[in-house]
């Protein structure tokens, strides 16, 4: 019997994929393995605890936000680098290249990655479309991590970090006038009640990894392990597909409620944003040394062949 914990609420697509994973495992291994999914914060863990919680077997399987594990393992920070990958294809390529390094790091902390799951990219939701680099200047924008704050500040915005619970009241009272988050969150927060525009800036395509404690995994028979890996692969494919679809679907929902969606940004804006994001990459390279350099050089070569 195994517990699987996610931070996310029942309606969230990550939670849904976790449930699907548990369901398929439970069906395939009836009477042998039973996975129970705990949604939301039911087990009292925070994002930053999750990676080590698997290591300690507090919860044997967890959905871990990679970006939250950077204290122990800086290498995972790559997936949240702002304005680095430009679309899902690039994100997948980057993951494929980095995957062996991620697996090694996970093994160091007594766990194994069952599958990875991307988030829909964060867009800028505001009272105007972001067309030029200049448009970012003066935005009172809510961000959720260090990278977002640093990059948007550099672009002249008043970036403030705010808990999700404070976002809606702050928008309603004009304490902030824009939010950096996924369109899924924009739908959840019913942003159309207060905002008018969504601009797809591909801030980042953050990744979660669904990890299992290695002791628990080794307790499984060879056959059972294979089933875990196989279903994990299926879930990975599933989540990559639905994350991309979710972005367009949620944007359509926002549009139906009267928001204007800008899906393409100018080269000027994209270029300047990427340049601003370079600092974060450089800092990451410093922390990860040779591993970081390896990943990046492979990525830069193969990125050109994409399309």
């Amino acid at each position: 019997e195994l517990n699987l914990a996610t931070t996310y609420s029942a309606a969230n697509m990550h939670a849904e994929t976790c449930r699907e994973f548990a369901k398929r495992i439970n069906e395939a291994l009836t009477g042998e393995v039973l996975i129970t999914v705990h949604e939301g914060g039911a087990l009292g863990l925070k994002d930053e605890d999750r990676f080590t919680a698997v290591a300690d077997n507090i919860v044997p399987i967890q959905s871990v936000l990679m970006g939250a594990a950077i204290g122990t393992s800086p290498v995972f920070g790559l997936s949240t680098s702002p304005f680095f990958v430009k679309n899902f294809k690039e994100a997948k390529l980057l993951l494929d290249i980095a995957r062996p390094y991620y697996e090694k790091e996970a093994k160091k902390f007594n766990q194994r990655i069952l599958y990875t799951a991307p988030w829909p990219p964060s867009s800028i939701h505001a009272k105007k479309a972001i067309k030029k680099f200049e448009d970012i200047k003066g935005l009172r924008i809510r961000t959720y991590d260090k990278n977002g704050t640093a990059v948007l500040k550099k672009a002249g915005a008043n970036a403030v970090v705010m808990s999700w619970g404070d976002v809606y009241p702050a928008l309603a009272t004009n304490t902030i006038d824009s939010v950096l988050t996924s369109s899924q969150s924009a739908v959840a927060g019913k942003f159309w009640e207060v905002l008018s525009d969504t601009t797809r800036v591909y801030f980042a395509i953050p990744l979660n990894m669904i990890n299992i404690n290695l002791d628990e995994f080794n307790k499984l028979s060879k056959k059972q392990q294979e089933i875990f890996i196989k279903i994990g692969n299926d879930m990975e494919a599933r989540q990559w597909k639905i994350a991309e679809e979710a972005m367009t679907k949620d944007e359509a929902k926002c549009a139906a409620k009267g928001m204007t969606i800008t899906t393409e940004i100018s080269d000027e804006l994209a270029g300047k944003l990427a340049k601003n994001g370079q600092d974060v990459i450089n800092a990451w390279l410093k922390k990860t040394g040779k591993i970081g350099k390896d990943i990046l050089s492979k990525f830069e070569t193969q990125r050109k062949n994409l399309k």
Binding site: G40, G165, V194
Partner: peptide
């Protein structure tokens, strides 16, 4: 409003916190 419980509920149920308030 404001209410901590309604904020948590809004986040979990993906409902507008404004409407709940």
């Amino acid at each position: 409003p404001p209410s901590i419980v309604l904020i948590i509920y809004g986040v979990l149920a993906e409902e507008s916190i404004g409407q709940l308030f």
